[in-house]
């Protein structure tokens, strides 16, 4: 079971080259197949995930959550998807049509692109970039543009305010996000994901870098626009923020992209701080799924526990607390590495 997916990929390439294709083209086709696989996994996973969040939020409030459709209400998301697919598609007349229509697509494409570098098992990265971690951060920073496009294109005050809020928030929290990961990079000496996983074979980085983990967790929550940092969506004041004017499937694409981002960030957290796919007995790809889902549950718990915090508190928390702390963490890590190297480790 361990090498099932890797062997399948090798077999596919071998078969394609056997048909007389040049190796470059065979690799390209493999890449396309991997992309399609990622998209299918993302969509299936999100069906489960939305059900899980509704169920978990129910349990937190001592409710039952969806339980009418299928076993434990698992088909609830399918019903929602069918409904959203058949909803009327409204493009309001005064919108900036080009931007309004492309924004959800940009958002979902960027979210799916994050999966390229995540090691989903032993040797199961789509591309093992030598700058993998940096790739994740910089592609993640692009999603601000999609939200700005949605906010501007809708030609709606709430949308614009929501878009601007989310951009202000995401730009501020990107800095502690990147800085907190720097500590890990300093210890590993590499931005390559497989190196980071390999460096954790003895001890997880969450033990070596607790401060970095906490700052990363907080800023990742803010970066995902999830509660308690969901100011851009704030239903009570901005109806739905940047998504206010979107109907049916366009809105569903935004929703899909948000959950895709959530899973990607959780998987990255599992990779960087919790030893990635490493674990005893079970196959490696199962381990990363288990770890990702545990982290996702913590995200759910946090969202359904804390009330939304105020916009100015949000910003000052990032600039006045998280950034200094993550910088201090870098200093501490550097000093620690230097001391340990002098001691002859």
């Amino acid at each position: 079971m361990e090498h099932f997916f890797v062997n399948t990929a090798h077999a596919l390439v071998a078969w394609l080259t056997g048909l007389g294709l040049a190796p470059g083209w065979a690799d390209l086709i493999l890449l396309v197949v991997q992309w399609i696989a990622v998209i299918i996994i993302v969509i299936l996973n999100i069906t489960v995930l939305i059900w899980l969040e509704r169920k978990v939020s129910g349990f937190i409030q001592q409710r039952l959550g969806p339980n009418r459709l299928g076993p434990f209400g698992m088909f609830q998301t399918i019903a929602d998807a069918i409904k959203l697919l058949t909803k009327e598609d409204i493009v309001p007349s005064q919108t900036d049509r080009m931007i309004f229509k492309t924004a959800p697509m940009v958002f979902i494409i960027i979210s799916v692109m994050l999966y390229v570098v995540i090691p989903m098992g032993d040797g199961m990265e789509i591309v093992d970039l030598n700058v993998g971690l940096f790739y994740f951060i910089s592609i993640g920073s692009l999603s601000t543009i999609a939200l700005l496009m949605a906010g501007w294109g809708s030609n709606n005050k709430w949308s614009l305010l929501g878009g601007m809020r989310s951009v202000a928030q995401m730009i501020s929290y990107e800095i502690p996000l990147a800085f907190s990961l720097l500590g890990v990079v300093m210890i590993t000496g590499s931005l390559r994901m497989s190196d980071i996983v390999a460096a954790q074979s003895n001890i997880w980085f969450v033990v070596l870098q607790p401060i970095a983990f906490i700052t990363y967790f907080i800023s990742a929550t803010a970066e995902l626009n999830r509660g308690p940092f969901d100011m851009p969506e704030a239903e009570q004041e901005l109806t739905s923020g940047a998504y206010t004017e979107y109907t049916g499937m366009r809105w569903a694409l935004f929703f899909l992209a948000e959950y895709t981002n959530l899973v990607a960030v959780s998987a990255l957290m599992a990779t960087v701080f919790f030893g990635g796919w490493q674990g005893p007995w079970l196959p490696s790809w199962l381990w990363i799924i288990i770890k990702t889902y545990l982290i996702l549950n913590v995200f759910f718990l946090i969202k359904w526990t804390f009330p939304r915090i105020r916009m100015d508190h949000l910003m000052s928390f990032s600039w006045k607390f998280l950034i200094p702390v993550s910088l201090a963490n870098i200093l501490l890590t550097g000093a620690g590495i230097e001391v340990l190297m002098r001691m002859g480790w």
Binding site: F59, I60, Q61, Q62, R63, T305
Partner: peptide, 21 residues
Amino acid sequence: GLLKGLGITLKHTFEREITQQ
């Protein structure tokens, strides 16, 4: 305080649901 809040919700997660069907 945050941890306390998380603890409360976590405790409720594993309590019996009070929903009437």
